[in-house]
Design a protein around this nucleic acid. Structure first.
Lengths: 212, 212
DNA sequence: TAATGTGAATTGTTTCACAGCA
DNA sequence: TGCTGTGAAACAATTCACATTA
């Protein structure tokens, strides 16, 4: 599959990681960064990094690597700049509040501009302005928001998803673990720690405790 | 790439999702579930679901679908049964505690059996038994634990990763967002909400077109 | 000489087309 | 008829080999 701009999905998923490291290099005053360096830090192959960057039209220079500023600009442009960096949070429970507090969970430049919940009244007096799901469409239109993080509990995750759809948003990051069902015209990325763990458990197989 | 048991990685990543739905069906008293049904709930193609299940040796029956009990057993076996369901949590900060509280974040059957932190003394009196990183190896050996969730803040995520390696664990779920560097013999899965959001933002593009 | 750049081969994954079965 | 089962084809992603250049 190929994204609207012609970048392979697999590449697109890696771009944010490159961007992060490149910005870091930039902030340390470096002007160049090598594919080897990026690869090693991300546990990827250097050739793959080069292919990815070259696919964006970023050209490096032998013996030095890739120019940090150009690369940063090109990747940011491909990821939509900071165009879509405003987000809604749907779900103000345990998980939602951890995301808001954001100690290590790393929304990295994305901005939670409003919080919605099925039962907003439960959160009065917590210093949070939690709104009912029904207000989402209105606010999305007024603020130009196009993405949401769905952090609803299992009981109402689907209801939250439906609200996101009804609000006309274009993308959702689903942390509900259900997973919630979205219509195909909405871009969805799902995060499910339980599933990831199960996957890892399958990967390492039924051995006994690791040696060493 | 093919996992130890011969199941493609892409399939392996979907197995936990199937398992969840199948168990749910089972708990509702259903004896059969169709690939169409599973596919629709997960936003996948039915053919893909059939390929995945057939790859595990699960055989269905025309007009009825796949037998819920068999499928459940086969998938669980492939994912290591409940063999590897004990976990360490590395990092007792905001994020780590949200995971412990687990309201919606869904560890789904996995068990956090011990919590480690670089500064365990910060968590005295919170009703948590937080241990120093140096104790991890010992406990891993004694309890037969082989996996960890890394939920350390940026400041010491790499230190946490190193401790996981030193403890001889076989797999880690890295939520640090750095990402932390692990040696290749350790199975790592990375979750990075910021990266996922950036990816989505790239997918939906700067306009208003949606793509999947 | 230490890096990038890239066509081609390889490997992995998804989808198709259609056979078989209850 | 409505589903599974599967070899083959199509597609996608990764890796290789080697040319290239400052």
């Amino acid at each position: 599959m190929v994204s609207p701009v012609g970048v392979p999905v697999a590449t697109l998923k890696r771009l944010p990681l490159y961007l992060k490291l490149i910005k870091e290099a930039s902030s340390r005053g470096l002007a160049w960064i090598s594919s080897e360096d990026l690869a090693q830090k991300l546990g990827l192959g250097a050739i793959q990094v080069r292919k990815d960057l070259s696919g964006l039209g970023i050209v490096g220079s032998p013996r030095r690597g890739f120019p940090v500023e150009d690369a940063s600009r090109a990747i940011a442009a491909c990821l939509g700049g900071d165009n879509s960096s405003d987000l809604f949070l749907v779900g103000a429970g345990e998980l939602g509040r951890a995301i808001l507090a954001d100690r290590g969970i790393g929304l990295q430049g994305f901005n939670l501009v409003a919080v919605f919940d099925r039962t907003p009244e439960r959160y009065y007096g917590l210093g949070l302005d939690v709104m009912p799901l029904s207000k989402m469409g209105d606010l999305a239109a007024r603020m130009g928001v196009r993405m949401a993080v769905l952090a609803a509990g299992h009981e109402w995750a689907q209801e939250g998803a439906d609200a996101i759809v009804a609000a006309g948003l274009a993308a959702a990051l689903d942390l509900s673990g259900l997973p919630a069902i979205f219509p195909p015209e909405i871009a969805v990325s799902r995060v499910n720690l339980g599933a990831d763990l199960a996957y890892l458990s399958g990967l390492i197989g039924p051995g006994r405790a690791a040696a060493r």
